[in-house]
Design a protein around this nucleic acid. Sequence first.
RNA 1: GGGCUCGUAGCUCAGCUAGGUAGAGCGACAGGCUCUUAACCUGUUGGCCGGGGGUUCGAAUCCCCCCGAGCCCGCCA
Length: 517
Amino acid sequence: MGAFPVVHWADVVAEKLAMENRRHVLATAITPSGPIHVGNLREVMTTEAIYRALKDRGAEAELIYIGDTFDPLRKVYPFLPEEYEKYVGMPLADIPCPCGEHENYAMHFLEPFLESLKDLGVRPHVYLAHEVYRKGIYNEAIKVAMDNAGKIREIMNSIAHRGLPETWMPFNVKCEKCGKLNGEIVAYEWPLASYKCKSCGFEGEVDLRKGGAGKLPWRVDWPARWKIFGVTFEAFGKDHAAAGSSWDTGKVIVKEIFHHPPPMPLVYEFIHLKGRGAMHGSTGVAVSSEEVLRMLPSEVLRFLFMKYEPNRHIEFDTGFGLLDLVDEYDRYERIYFGLEGETAGTKDARRVYELSQPHSIPSRMPLSIPYRHLAVVAQIGRNFEEVVEILSRKHEIKDFDMERLRERYEKIKYWLENYAPEEIKFQLMHEKPDVELSEEDIKFLSALKKKMEELEWEAEKIHTCIHDTAKEVGISAGKAFRAIYRIMLGRDKGPRAGYFLQSLGRDFVLRRIGEFI
RNA sequence: GGGCUCGUAGCUCAGCUAGGUAGAGCGACAGGCUCUUAACCUGUUGGCCGGGGGUUCGAAUCCCCCCGAGCCCGCCA
């Protein structure tokens, strides 16, 4: 097994799957009932990593994503207008798009998510549940389920301790009158079923062969899917893994009803927003995948998932932790390119780095600017070109690096505007700020102004000039810098003074000092 | 009541699936860079490994109990 050391979790799972020596179908599914957040994303990323690891071993594998577009809307979520009350119970694909620009409600949330997947280099075969049903692909499974309703009921009652009544049937009809998935079957003889709608009271009869006539309940739908798509592996959140939960009933139903083996399972933990608990669409503790990609390079987001084993919960921090995460990624990159040794804190660094690449692995070590530093420079330069100019003083920026630098610049700008803690933000005071200065501060500034009038306006020179002047006036350098930051930013600390003042321009600096002496 | 997962330095986490006197990053602190920014470099600090038992010559690592945290156990997915 030399080429792929079996240490990374994705390789461990892939190794096991590969031993089965057959074609694999790895399934993922998410219900687009609201913004699809990074917590949900973990399911896809985890599965995709294993998919890649399988391919790396030469196994034949397919990655599929099933959008649960045929699920009913459960309630009016906080982000929805009240009028959506009338759609509760209807399939997501039948409900109008909240913004009016997508085909339907489901696509409103699904499309940006699928876009994110593209950025992340994930290209699954996408199926939409409402289409799968409509095309009649479920028909066989529906018949088997209906014909075995009694057995399914027993399984559910014994494993999940449900008190399902004798009359329970494993199918919810979509009411022809109100369009909700609340039609309860009262009589059945394949292929016809009579139902009564629990929502509007309508009574009717449907031909179950007509695609989209209704839907299998989740606990039956899931195992049916394993058979229909030949799923051999599926990762799911621990909510499905609790005792008596859908995995417990599903693995029995698929064997005994559909006569098909269950896939290999993998339970993954949830993602928490630092300090706010597990992400949950309905509680508002969530950041959508597309939103995260606005502030974090895609390879770093992948890195977040690859680094931790699936059974660890992840603390996602949109504050300073985000900077640390990027810097940590860069560290793994240096290790990958041999510029730094692997240490106790890094785990499977090379493999994690490989799996973090959305597309191909860079042919050589990319330029890496400490992200924290970039956060500062991005606030000094007024645009990307200026930022490049500032960075060029210390770093050699090649064309090769420009694209990544631009992406990082744009993302950190977004982060600064929307998520960054106040401590790292600074803003040039365009008007004279209201700050306290001491006698010696003023003495220092006066002397500084005089010297600066003659000074060559260059960062290093400015820096030295500040120190020289401080010494001459007999004020500590600390106080000197503080005075400068106070009159420029209205606070005690700031970015490297030399570069900072240089970028502000001599005129501005002299004028501002003049306002205080 | 039940299931799964987790509890290691201020923070985020390695180490625990072949038991052998605690690790990384960040932070903080100090120093360096021909003179103290939030760059960069170096160093220091910092943990009775949630608690208690047991197995062992020896346990963060194995077993048992307890405490704490998270999510779940709805004809919802």
